[in-house]
Design a protein around this nucleic acid. Structure first.
Lengths: 225, 225
DNA sequence: CTTCCTTCGTTGAATTTTCAACATACAATA
DNA sequence: TATTGTATGTTGAAAATTCAACGAAGGAAG
């Protein structure tokens, strides 16, 4: 386990826990390690949802396949990040998404029940872990909430403005970089890429923003409230 | 407090807790009561998010107001249901929505910190409450996730079919009632009501479903995978 | 039974989005 | 510097959505 210490201490599940206590805790949490090769299925739809996964190396993708067989990538999970916690903590019981290795990766599984029930030796860090897990779930909730607000808008322009104003608020500045290229932004907003480009062009003509690649600056004085 | 016992035992925060223990626990949780009149602001954007609210009588609405002043109702909270838990458990620190009394109501506030840190007398039910809160957050997460899947689809027809297939799955039957009228369903899906009606008519002509008011029956044999 | 009111379906015009195709800009690298 | 590949912008036609308006259906109440 020790070789992954550097990653584990970055994991938000262990924030606030002293470095020296992380490795000893893993026992209480029923931690186990497993390696997966590229494209291998880590968890699949319908399988029991008892474990929280932590990506140690490589990366995994959360894949949703709808009734008509359309795949969509719900999220990409990078080293030190978690997956499966929503299902393990909910009353769903089983996974409703697939988790696939995007490349060869090492995964640590933690038994969610062991996180929630404090361990027999009543380790004092347990409480912090529960607190952290709660934070993670609640923060993900906020992110979903924001996304729903944005994509509930009816037009490309409204979605775009809602997104940019939200980013400006997040950065506390009217000038910021976004983490998406055009196609990714279009996918995030649920609109057509070319239509998005057109709308950006119009907004610039109206002097409501200036942009270049993924750097944006909102000209709030020209944006009607 | 005792007069609200009947409601509290319905509250999912207390599920799995023996009836006789609910009232005694409220002390550990820093519970307090307050009455609000219709339209009164219970929590507002920017106010500190330290408390979880439980609706005891009446109802409250979660209101989101965007940059342009458009109001939208995020949720209606009925007796025995919770509000504010996402904000109190996240690292947001402050509310980013308003909570308004939809009618005169009695609200119980619980100190979220006292839920998360086990109490000095180490009450044994504390763990169950934390477990329940985690469930509530994770389940809400799943609900949001489902909603995002649905409204991310591009066309009215796709959104509608995704919604109906999801409902069928939830009911374990191709025949079910939905909890929305047409306007509400249109708002949920983020589409135009008349366009939604048109699409329903088309699907019926294609013999893919039959419906009447809010009763629906999917004819899966005619729905192409 | 009639009236009132709400919900739902229908229609056509206006608007918006999507789609496909291509032009241009930009970055990496040989 | 020349080349190549990717990202972005632009355009026009087709498709879908929205909008406004109205008519029909169904319930509730007198």
């Amino acid at each position: 386990m020790k070789k992954y210490f550097g990653i584990l201490r970055e994991c938000s599940l262990f924030s606030g826990i002293d470095d020296s206590n992380i490795i000893p805790m893993l026992g209480c949490l029923g931690a186990s390690l497993r390696r997966f090769e590229k494209k291998e299925v880590i968890l699949s739809v319908g399988s029991p949802a008892n474990y929280i996964g932590i990506v140690l190396t490589g990366s995994v993708q959360i894949i949703q396949i709808d009734y008509f067989g359309n795949r969509s990538i719900v999220a990409s999970i990078l080293p030190s990040e978690l997956f499966g916690e929503t299902f393990a903590c909910s009353s769903a019981g089983v996974m409703s998404v697939d988790v696939i290795a995007n490349e060869a990766c090492d995964i640590m599984f933690i038994d969610c029940q062991k996180v929630l029930k404090s361990c027999s030796n009543a380790c004092s860090f347990h409480q912090q872990i529960i607190f952290n897990l709660m934070h993670i779930l609640a923060n993900k909730n906020l992110i979903f909430h924001t996304k729903i607000d944005i994509i509930s808008k009816r037009t490309t322009r409204e979605k775009l403005m809602a997104y940019l104003l939200m980013e400006a608020q997040k950065h506390n500045s009217n000038s910021f970089e976004i983490p998406y290229n055009r196609q990714e932004l279009a996918d995030y907003l649920g609109v057509d890429r070319s239509g998005l480009s057109t709308e950006l062009g119009k907004l610039e003509k109206e002097r409501k923003l200036v942009y270049k690649r993924n750097h944006f600056e909102l000209l709030l004085e020209n944006i009607d409230k």
